[in-house]
């Protein structure tokens, strides 16, 4: 099956007063139709920038694209143009971290959904003039019902501040699904939510994506949430792809030293969390070679000189490291 999203060797930076911040450095990621891919990394690793690059919403004047391409459904999203614009909001939609900031506080939920449908959603009701508002409302209600919001009709008449955080995120997911997209980019959609609400939202997102065959690119810094929902996991560190693996292999047999240290940092009873000394390098002066080398216990001279290529094994487990762990870890996480 060909890839729905295909990103190859993407490097981009932002022009700042202090020079160019190289935020992404030759990123390779692909997403197959119907697949849920987790994009995991700590703050500052470039995962949100990548999500915005796919959507084509990076600040135009400041962004410098150095190499690579992003193809969504065969269309180049970086060059812009009508074709890319047509896909945005229709074929690929977005679920933000903070839904409150994405609603207009002055308009009712129903009005905002209707605006979205007028421009982006496919027509399914036959109206005398263009589309029918009644049919729009009916499909909006059906969708709010699908995201398990009680009394969807009453929700349409409410303002964003009248909903709770979990309800707002459900409405956001409904709005992301209404255009019948083939891909949803969810940027930390449960970070602001409580754990019981998170479980409900993650379950909903996974169920709807599987039922409708929608691909999801799910960025998160929460490894537990990634385990919960993803089929495949990509780890990024300081703008570089560190490791890509199917879920079980990722947690059971991590090969990149960074991935291993990240998993060892998770709190668990009876084990002292290890942590990673040092901090994420500034994109303004990123280290040469592998960007993890200043913090890596396995680093040697070659790690300072050349950037390890992402090499994929026969099992679909890819790692970019000169000295990957090969044997199964003692005390592995699965």
């Amino acid at each position: 099956m060909s890839n729905l999203l295909d990103i190859q060797a993407l490097s981009l930076g932002f022009r700042t007063e202090k020079g160019i911040a190289k935020v992404l450095d030759r990123i390779d990621i692909s997403v197959k139709p119907g697949e849920i891919v987790g994009l995991v990394g700590e703050s500052g690793c470039g995962k949100s920038t990548l999500a915005r690059a796919i959507l084509g919403t990076l600040p135009e004047g400041q962004t410098e694209i150095n190499s690579g391409h992003i193809r969504l459904d065969g269309v180049d999203m970086l060059s812009g143009g009508k074709a890319a614009e047509h896909l945005r909001g229709r074929v690929v939609t977005f679920v933000p971290q903070d839904p409150f900031a994405s609603f207009n506080p002055l308009f009712r939920i129903g009005t905002q959904i209707q605006d979205l449908m007028r421009f982006k959603a496919p027509r399914d009701g036959a109206g005398s003039f263009g589309r029918s508002r009644k049919a729009d409302e009916a499909s909006a209600i059906a969708m709010l019902d699908a995201v398990q919001l009680p009394q969807p009709k009453a929700i349409l008449a409410k303002y964003p501040h009248q909903l709770s955080g979990g309800q707002r995120q459900r409405v956001m997911i409904a709005m992301a699904l209404l255009p019948q997209p083939r891909m949803i980019i969810a940027d930390e959609p449960t970070t602001a939510l409580d754990v019981t609400v998170q479980a409900q939202i993650l379950g909903l997102l996974r169920r709807l994506a599987v039922e409708r065959g929608v691909s999801v690119l799910f960025t998160t810094h929460d490894l537990g949430a990634a385990w919960e929902i993803c089929d495949r996991i990509v780890v990024m560190y300081a703008g570089q792809t560190a490791e890509i693996a199917p879920r079980e292999q990722f947690f059971g047999d991590p090969r990149h030293p960074y991935t291993r240290m990240l998993l060892d940092s998770l709190p668990s009873p009876g084990r002292d969390p290890v942590g990673i000394p040092g901090g994420v390098p500034s994109p303004l002066k990123a280290p040469d070679g592998c960007r993890f080398n200043p913090r890596c216990p396995r680093a040697t001279d070659i790690c300072h000189e050349s950037r390890p290529a992402l090499t994929t094994g026969s099992d679909g487990h890819a790692v970019a490291c000169h000295h990957p762990w090969l044997a199964k870890a003692e005390g592995a996480h699965v």
């Binding site: 479980a199 409900q200 996974r206 537990g224 947690f251 996480h333």
Partner: peptide, 12 residues
């Protein structure tokens, strides 16, 4: 039961 357990079944 709502907290994901890595290595455990999907709680969702």
């Amino acid at each position: 039961s709502a907290a994901p357990v890595i290595g455990g079944p999907r709680v969702t």
